[in-house]
């Protein structure tokens, strides 16, 4: 079984950067991306599509927990378990705040105009679109499970002959 990285941070925005950087580094373990600056591997350096998807989605879910579960108040913790393997990255996020109504998130407008351009409600859409799996179980504790798989060419998984 792949080793799991565990991080426990207070559920406030002050600790968001620590969590995001840990997730970014774990994504790079899977994607094999070399940091732009090897002397500062934790700099905001997200270029590979896999890293982009994982970090973008995680940022939105972390924001969601702080805003909706903990209502921007101190007191709760966010438990993060990151499991990187050769083929995928799984992130489980737990909080003990107010459950979130994920089914109540409206879809993006079909047509974007000056009037319909959204100024909110984009976070869950970003996470769901970027990842292969996003599941949410209301609690307590509330549990998010995020999964992103590396794209594997079909030729590498088949016999190579038809």
């Amino acid at each position: 079984m792949a080793p799991t990285i565990r991080l426990s941070v207070p559920g406030t925005l002050r600790y968001r950067g620590i969590a995001v950087r840990a997730v970014a580094e774990a994504a790079r373990l899977v994607s094999g991306t070399t940091p732009r600056d090897p002397n500062d591997p934790l700099v905001d350096d997200v270029r590979h599509p896999f890293d982009t998807a994982v970090v973008s989605a995680f940022m939105e879910i972390f924001n969601n927990v702080v805003i909706h579960a903990y209502r921007r108040k101190d007191g709760g913790m966010i438990e993060i378990a990151i499991t990187p393997t050769d083929q995928e990255l799984v992130i489980e996020i737990r909080d003990t705040g107010t459950p979130f109504d994920i089914d109540g998130v409206p879809p993006l407008p079909d047509e974007l105009t000056d009037e319909t351009l959204p100024e909110g409600g984009m976070g869950i859409h970003i996470a769901k679109t970027m990842l292969d799996e996003v599941t949410y179980e209301p609690g307590p504790p509330n549990r998010w499970r995020l999964c992103k798989r590396l794209d594997v060419p079909h030729a590498a998984t088949g016999s190579g002959r038809s």
Binding site: D44, V46, N63, P118, E119, G120, G123, I126
Partner: peptide, 10 residues
């Protein structure tokens, strides 16, 4: 700009 989230887009 290196990173943006939905708050930045908004």
């Amino acid at each position: 700009l290196d990173l943006i989230d939905s708050s930045g887009v908004a």
